[in-house]
């Protein structure tokens, strides 16, 4: 085999800056630090071996994330109890806001929730939701780039994000009520 080569930047220069992103996305996909580490390492080695297929100047982050995702689907996804989507369809989209708009209209209860609980709530989302949420709202990838990486239409990215955010908000709200960060809405008598 010839030395992997690409004109211009080296593999290290293109790929290593994305290690933090790859690690965080791997954590969200596997929900397991040990598996996440193995997944990132496997991804980097696979990427190195297919480095000649990478077109310089294109989106290295998306390219690496596609490899990470395929590796995860093929070799890692053996979860027994994959979380399922909450049935939010029946609920009015802005119901949560309606219930806090008098007591905490700016949603400051979000800032009281500890990091670990936020991550736990994300990891309890269904896989499809977790994935788009991690890429968009944690890594800051534009919708178009997510669509390309996941090979789904932008409209699907948007609708998954919308439902993922709603489910996450509902879970965090329940937690905040439980912890006393926010008063529960008085039930109509």
């Amino acid at each position: 085999m010839a030395e992997p080569s690409a004109p211009g930047r080296s593999f290290d220069e293109e790929a290593l800056p994305h290690l933090d992103t790859l690690y965080r996305v791997a954590l969200r996909l596997t929900s397991d630090p040990t598996q996440a580490e193995d997944l990132v390492q496997d991804t980097m080695l696979k990427a190195y071996r297919s480095w000649r297929q990478y077109r310089p100047g294109t989106n290295a982050r998306g390219w690496l994330l596609t490899i990470l995702r395929n590796t995860f689907i093929n070799d890692y996804r053996r979860r027994k109890h994959e979380p399922i989507a909450m049935d939010l369809e029946a609920v009015e989209p802005h119901a949560l806001y309606r219930s806090i708009q008098d007591t905490d209209p700016e949603g400051s209860f979000f800032s009281q929730i500890v990091d670990a609980k936020v991550l736990e709530a994300i990891d309890a989302l269904p896989a499809d939701f977790r994935e788009v949420l991690a890429l968009s709202d944690i890594e800051g990838m534009p919708y178009g780039e997510i669509a390309e990486t996941l090979k789904i239409p932008v409209g699907t990215v948007k609708s998954r994000l919308f439902r993922a955010r709603r489910q996450l908000q509902a879970v965090l709200y329940d937690h905040a009520v439980e912890m006393g960060y926010i008063k529960p809405r008085e039930t109509a008598s």
Binding site: L22, Y23, R24, L27, V40, H94, E106, G107, A134
Partner: peptide, 30 residues
């Protein structure tokens, strides 16, 4: 009001969930 609520949710996600970084030991192993 609703926009502020949504914004604090998105800011919370961005600032808290993106804190984790690739462990040094893993970086070295890779």
């Amino acid at each position: 009001g609703y926009a502020r609520f949504e914004e604090s949710f998105l800011v919370m996600l961005e600032t808290r969930a993106a804190k984790e970084t690739c462990p040094e030991a893993l970086r070295a192993r890779i």
